[in-house]
């Protein structure tokens, strides 16, 4: 994706390709990449707040919880901290 507001890869050598699922859509990632970085580069939406307003990573260092999602069934997982792995299932159902 190259639309304004999204993110693009800068280094071509990124580890082995893996595919994760974000809200049912396949997202390409690579080993070593965090789930949050993969989602940003794919233009995938993050979990909305409970008013329905869009949110996205703010700190990228595990403190703000804006990037949190349900990862392989575990609630409130900070996607900026976890490396993407083949078959990982990410869900952003919206916060309570």
């Amino acid at each position: 994706m190259t639309t304004d507001g999204s993110w693009r890869h800068t280094a071509p050598e990124r580890g082995d390709a893996v595919t994760i699922s974000v809200d049912g859509e396949p997202v390409r990632a690579c080993t070593g990449e965090t789930v949050a970085a993969a989602m940003l580069a794919a233009g995938a939406a993050f979990e909305r707040d409970r008013s329905g307003a869009p949110r996205a990573p703010l700190c990228n260092m595990g403190t703000c919880f804006e990037c949190a999602a349900t990862v392989d069934g575990r609630l409130l997982t900070r996607t900026c901290l976890i490396p993407a792995r083949e078959g990982m299932v990410i869900k952003t159902p919206g916060r309570l």
Partner: peptide, 22 residues
């Protein structure tokens, strides 16, 4: 979305090798 901290952007650019578009 699109508002980020300097530390957040720095670590994405340096350690994850991605850059903002726009």
């Amino acid at each position: 979305p699109g508002v980020m901290t300097a530390g957040g952007v720095q670590t994405l650019v340096k350690a994850q090798k991605i850059a903002p578009v726009g």
